[in-house]
């Protein structure tokens, strides 16, 4: 059905889907509450933010970078929404546009730092992440603010188990999948992640590709922030902190290579759902919050180990 390298990229995502399926089966058996309508709705809506953020992270990882400013951009986006969206009249469109533009700007700075000033991606994105977090704190030091009720109504409108947020996530995934696997731009992202020098020699404008992936990541993070703001119904300058690492984890669990050039964005979706499931299951099993971090970390290490072993088996046999 799928031709070319897409088959390989999807194959790399398979373990994540298998883990997801196993977790669903496990949860359905061991918890009566899991398979309820309310809970499934809850898992999906909880996972939406991470799933969306993981799209942008995947773009960046595929071209060989990493974006650790995602979390701060998400926080900033929630703060912008909380401050601007309830301004009468122009508030809603102004808030949405400002948030996305802010994300794009963060991405632009990251991208230019990487291609112009040759700063390692991890360093530049950590730095801008800190910078953005500071700005978010300046704008709104504490959780709160006013989010437009109209916007809330729009973004939480339901269609079965899916609400507007999760539909938005799905639409973004479809768009990202098409872009990465069926457009020349997508092909270039993979080419740069494989070998930037030779991609350049094949006529790929590698610098432009790198910068745009960071901008995609920033803008997508802004959207993730909106979804998160709707769910908690407030702006919070620190709420996004975990998403930088979690979005990397989701993508990598989903089979996206940390060194770039292989994996599929669909894997990132599975990875995000796996992480969401872990949270949900532990909440239902009433695991104490601090243990949740430990267990989540352990499960991630385990998942990554499975990948390492799998990959080694492939290369030596």
């Amino acid at each position: 059905m799928f031709k070319g390298s897409l088959r390989k990229h999807l194959w790399q995502a398979m373990p994540a889907f298998a883990i997801l399926a196993a977790m669903i089966a496990f949860a359905s058996v061991f918890s009566e509450k899991f398979a309820t309508y309310a809970n499934i709705k809850n898992v999906i809506s909880q996972s939406s933010t991470l799933a969306i953020a993981a799209i942008g992270q995947t773009f960046v990882l595929l071209q060989g970078g990493i974006d650790l400013s995602v979390g701060s951009t998400i926080s900033l986006s929630t703060v912008i929404l909380a401050q601007v969206s309830s301004v009468p009249g122009v508030g809603i469109p102004l808030a949405l546009i400002t948030a996305v533009l802010a994300g794009a700007l963060v991405g632009l700075i990251n991208g230019l730092g990487v291609v112009r000033f040759r700063i390692p991606p991890m360093i530049i994105t950590l730095s801008t992440g800190s910078l953005v977090k500071g700005i978010a704190l300046l704008i709104q030091p504490k959780p709160g603010g006013n989010i437009s009720v109209t916007l809330l109504d729009i973004l939480t409108a339901k269609a079965g188990v899916l609400n507007t947020s999760s539909l938005m996530a799905l639409a973004l995934y479809a768009l990202a999948f098409l872009t990465l696997h069926y457009t020349r731009y997508g092909r270039q992202v993979y080419a740069v992640g494989n070998d930037a020098l030779h991609a350049r020699q094949s006529g790929v404008a590698a610098d432009r590709v790198v910068v745009t992936t960071y901008m995609v990541s920033g803008m997508v993070a802004a959207v993730a922030g909106m979804v998160l703001a709707m769910r908690v119904f407030s702006g919070d300058p620190l709420i996004g902190d975990n998403y930088s690492m979690d979005s990397v984890a989701a993508a990598v669990v989903g089979g996206v290579s940390l060194i770039g050039g292989s994996g599929s964005v669909l894997g990132a979706l599975a990875g995000a759902l796996v992480l969401g499931m872990i949270n949900n299951m532990m909440n239902m099993l009433k695991v104490f919050a601090y243990y949740q971090y430990i267990i989540k970390g352990a499960i991630l290490v385990l998942a990554l180990l499975v990948f390492r072993i799998k990959r080694r088996a492939r290369t030596t046999c």
């Binding site: 070319g4 457009t183 020349r184 092909r187 991609a199 292989s262």
Partner: peptide
């Protein structure tokens, strides 16, 4: 200068991928 994670065909046609009417590869 080949891209290790791409297919032979994708490498050969890199930069001159045939597009469909909708500008997809």
């Amino acid at each position: 200068s080949l891209m290790e994670n791409m297919t032979v065909g994708e490498n050969i046609m890199l930069g001159q991928e045939p597009l469909t009417g909708r500008r997809l590869i």
